[in-house]
Simulated assay, not measured.
Amino acid sequence: MKTNQETTGPESSEASARKMLSRAREFLRMEAEALHHLARTIDDQICTVANLILRSNGIVAVTGVGKSRLISEKISATLASTGTRSIPLNPTDALHGDLGRLRSEDILLCLSNSGETEELTRFVVAARPLGVTIVAMTGNAGSPLARMSDFVVDMGSMPEACPLGLAPTTTTTAQMALGDALALVMLEQRGLSSEDFARYHPAGSLGQRLLRVREVMRHDDRLPIVLEGTPIKLALLIMYTTPGRPGAVVVVDGHSSLLGVLTDRDLEPIIDQEDTIFSNPIESIMHRDPPTIAPEAPVHAALDLVQRTSREHLVIVDDLQHVVGLLAASDIPGFSCTSAGAKTRIPLAS
């Protein structure tokens, strides 16, 4: 005979899943509604704080306790990535020596929904004699934290989405959103461009999409370049003494037009030959058709070219095909080559 559990199990499981999904949606709606309410009620104090930071020569130290500390790390990271010098600061660590990270020109942004967290208020009391500006982001404008702060960004009282009304949920979502809003209004005020933004995000797909080749290429004294007819020995000397050791040297004619490139890879066939070969002109062993790219090309296009041609060096040329730079694969942010073996180093002939 089947038990009642065996008979009703699948149906109960499906009903439970539907109930869970319904509750998940309800929790999300509660947090979304709290953000809508915050967007309507937030006052111009956030603008005051934004202008304060924009005029400051110091850093913004962001702090909190518990879940607010985790949010403070995210806000600090967002500020840093949008042009504001910022560090996260743990109140406990600050009370045990990290207070020395702060200077009088700095701003201390304190996150606490209740504004009554003991570790945080103790930190603020210890930080005030340093002359730092204290900013509270709190849901309780009458709290001890708010009273001892120079500026208060008031989130207002809001119920937690937690069915017990205990776990920080809605309030931490509001803190994160306010931190984003603060960072983004300052981004706009600074007139930060996508190119500026890319400088703070050089690695990964974001940096490769926004960065331009000219921003990472080797040029001026870091560009190893020789004229046609240069002896291999001298070309190698230039290759290996150029700052950054690029592992390549570009060959041009008298008009700076590209003729070829000599890399470590191109030297491999002559390893076992007589030393006299090093007196031959560089044209005898250089690679005559190196891949080229324009300085304004996006970095991801350079990475595609490296992968497509299997050449580790790209020559940067302008509209007139004059050489203006060199880009090694290792110069590309986020590039990794797991299959590349050790480079061959050729001793200079005496």
Rank of each mutant, 00 (worst) to 15 (best):
E6F: 01
T7K: 15
P10Q: 09
S16E: 07
R18N: 11
R18W: 00
M20A: 13
L21H: 11
R23Y: 12
R25Q: 12
R29Q: 14
A32V: 11
A34W: 08
L35D: 04
A39P: 07
T41M: 05
T48S: 10
G58A: 08
G66C: 08
S72F: 05
E73A: 10
E73Q: 15
K74T: 00
S76M: 04
A77P: 02
T78I: 09
S81N: 12
S81D: 04
T82I: 06
I87F: 14
E105Q: 15
D106Q: 11
L108C: 06
L111S: 05
S112K: 06
E116Y: 01
T117R: 04
L120Q: 03
F123N: 01
V124H: 07
V125L: 13
N140M: 01
S143V: 05
P144Y: 10
R147V: 10
F151M: 02
G156M: 09
G156R: 10
M158I: 06
E160D: 08
P163T: 11
A167Q: 13
A167E: 04
P168G: 06
T169N: 11
T170K: 06
T171I: 03
T173F: 03
A174R: 13
L178I: 15
L178D: 00
V185F: 00
L187K: 09
G191H: 09
G191N: 13
L192I: 15
E195C: 01
E195Y: 04
D196C: 08
G204I: 07
Q208Y: 01
R209A: 15
L210N: 03
L210D: 02
I225R: 15
V226M: 05
E228I: 02
K233C: 05
L236D: 07
I238F: 08
I238D: 00
Y240S: 12
T242S: 13
P243N: 14
G247M: 12
A248K: 09
V250R: 12
V252T: 15
D253T: 02
G254H: 12
S256C: 09
S257T: 14
L258E: 04
L259G: 02
L259M: 14
G260A: 07
V261E: 03
V261F: 02
L267P: 10
P269W: 10
P269D: 05
D275N: 13
T276I: 11
P281A: 08
S284R: 13
I285G: 10
R288I: 07
R288V: 09
P290I: 01
P291M: 02
T292M: 11
T292Y: 02
T292D: 02
A297N: 12
A297P: 04
A301E: 14
A301D: 11
A302L: 12
L303A: 14
L303V: 05
T309L: 02
R311Y: 08
V315F: 01
I316K: 01
L320A: 14
Q321P: 00
H322P: 00
S330M: 06
S336F: 03
C337T: 00
S339M: 07
S339I: 07
A340N: 01
G341D: 02
K343S: 13
R345P: 00
I346G: 00
S350I: 09
